[in-house]
């Protein structure tokens, strides 16, 4: 535990003249959940996609601890990176449609990562798929149904099951509760919190919803215009925001 699991140093990404992420550095420790909050267009998603290896940052040093070895993610060959992405990492997209294969059944969606990792026994794959459907509270009878016959919340839970099936150590989530109604959000958050605790996962969660951040994350990073403007323990940042923008963000939570 004396080394961070994942560390990012001096990450920058520009799209033309637009600076999406400017010189961002942070560490993630094993078992920790880091929340990244900020308004739309502040560079949260670009940051997440860059560190997860989905897009290439202009400049960055990204290190990941793997079996007592430090892997340099930004220098890594694509086949190695893909292997890491389908075994030890997971990425939950904001829209389930981006993260699921909509034209194959729920069981096949969950089984894909297993099959990509060499599972060749149909009954074993199916048993594992049923186990995970139950873990995310989807009726096992729906295993042969297409994801498009699922509700939005179920699709999101299916996407989470599909990602967790290989027991990843690190999970990236981009607005996992975006677009869901409040009661479904609450159940999904509950589920996520349980899974993360039980499996001892580390996670990086991008959200614009401070309630989600407060519920799930241990530490919080506040972003604005591609910069990290505040960084600290979740309670600390939310109770006693220092930067002017953080104060604005916290004060703009709707009080019902």
């Amino acid at each position: 535990m004396n080394q961070p699991l994942f560390s990012v140093t001096n990450l920058s990404k520009k799209f033309g003249k637009t600076i999406a992420c400017n010189d961002i550095s942070f560490d993630l420790w094993p078992g920790e959940i880091l929340g990244i909050v900020g308004e739309s267009g502040s560079g949260k998603t670009t940051l997440l996609r860059s560190i997860a290896g989905l897009i290439k940052p202009d400049q960055a040093t990204i290190n990941y601890q793997h079996k007592n070895k430090t892997l340099n993610i930004d220098q890594m060959d694509e086949p190695e990176l893909r292997h890491l992405q389908r075994t030890e990492w997971a990425f939950v997209h904001q829209h389930p449609r981006d993260g699921l294969r909509m034209n194959v059944s729920a069981g096949a969606n969950i089984g894909e990562r297993l099959m990509a990792n060499g599972w060749r026994h149909y009954d074993d794959i199916r048993a594992e798929a049923i186990k995970w459907l139950e873990a995310v509270e989807i009726d096992a009878k729906r295993i042969d149904d297409l994801p498009r016959t699922f509700s939005g919340g179920m699709q999101q839970r299916l996407q989470i099951a599909r990602n967790l099936v290989t027991n990843p150590r690190l999970i990236f989530m981009d607005e996992p509760t975006g677009g869901l109604d409040v009661s479904v959000q609450a159940r999904l958050l509950d589920l996520l919190r349980g899974l993360v605790r039980d499996l001892g996962l580390s996670a990086i969660i991008v959200t614009h919803d401070l309630a989600v951040a407060r519920l799930l994350s241990n530490r919080l990073m506040v972003m604005k215009d591609g910069q990290v403007i505040e960084h600290g323990l979740t309670d600390q940042v939310l109770e006693d925001p220092q930067a002017a923008y953080s104060q604005l963000l916290v004060s703009s939570i709707l009080q019902v």
Binding site: E78, V104, A108, A116, N117
Partner: peptide, 17 residues
């Protein structure tokens, strides 16, 4: 990259259906 998990997804779908 010999990333062929997807091919078995098709066969899996056959068996499940």
């Amino acid at each position: 990259f010999e990333d062929y998990g997807l091919m078995h997804v098709k066969l899996y779908e056959d068996i499940s259906q």
